[in-house]
Amino acid sequence: MSNDLRGRGAAFLDFWRERHLCTLTTVRLDGTPHVIAVGVTLDAQAGVARVITSRRSRKVRLLAGRGGLDAAGRVAVADAGSRVAAVPPTTSGAGEKPSVDGEMPGRPLWNSLADRGVEPVGGASVAASGRVGVPVAVCQVDGGRWSTLEGLAVVRDDPASVAEAERRYAERYRTPRVNPDRVVVEIEVTRVLGSV
């Protein structure tokens, strides 16, 4: 199946090139959405959206937790050629208060996605289509124009993936600051919603 989104038209492609702040939605253990402001880039030909972030960010921990961890404590990826961000599993801590976003620090961040039709296989989540990743959505709005990209996310930390994400981010937004802990959330787009 081709993920090429170029056929969606010039208005769609232009909208995803314009400089707009976006949101990334992941799901907490309790099933509530975790929505955070991010910069998103879209490779329309490959059907891949990218978000650069730090490996210790909440979004990376939620993705690691929702997709399961492999034996090395990493989110598994579709191809073995790319390494993914190591996220150490955590344990429950007594007397801890919820963080700003409502998560309990120290609690394990993994559970099954079976209720959403996604089963952990070898440390990754595999949808019925055979694709690997954790269900997420990115969205951007400008007045009455809006677009949401739903898809399956993996977290990568190999230098080539991070460099490509930084290059694309610099084209759409600005050159990102130096961050040795940078990783990239790669989202294979599976559905597009919106007015453009």
Rank of each mutant, 00 (worst) to 15 (best):
G106H: 04
V196W: 04
R172C: 15
D157L: 02
R174V: 13
A71R: 13
G67N: 02
R116T: 11
V77I: 06
R182Q: 12
D101Q: 01
L152N: 02
A37F: 07
A170Y: 09
P88E: 02
N179T: 14
R61P: 00
V48T: 08
H20P: 12
S112F: 07
T175K: 15
H20K: 14
S147K: 04
F15E: 06
V189P: 05
H34P: 02
N111C: 09
A94L: 11
L29D: 02
P108T: 05
D43H: 02
R131N: 10
G133S: 06
R167F: 09
P180K: 10
V60S: 03
I36M: 10
A165S: 10
P98Y: 10
R19T: 15
S92K: 12
T23G: 04
V51F: 01
A160D: 15
T148W: 04
V121F: 12
G144S: 15
V118G: 05
A124W: 04
A76P: 01
E96I: 12
S147E: 08
K97Q: 10
R19K: 15
T26L: 03
A94H: 00
A80Q: 08
S147W: 01
V48I: 15
D70W: 02
A137P: 01
G106W: 03
L109R: 11
A78G: 01
D14G: 01
D4N: 12
N179F: 14
N111V: 00
Y173E: 15
D158G: 13
V27I: 15
A86V: 10
V154E: 05
A124H: 02
V60P: 11
A127G: 14
A124M: 09
D14H: 09
D4T: 07
R116S: 08
R174M: 12
A11N: 09
S54Y: 09
Y169E: 13
L69A: 05
G9M: 06
A76L: 05
A127E: 11
A170M: 13
S82D: 14
A11G: 07
A10S: 09
H34A: 06
G133D: 02
R83W: 05
R8N: 10
I52G: 06
I36Y: 04
E96D: 08
E166F: 04
G143K: 00
Q140S: 13
S195R: 04
L42Q: 05
L62Q: 00
K59W: 03
A10F: 09
L63H: 02
E186T: 11
R66V: 05
S125F: 00
V183N: 05
T148L: 08
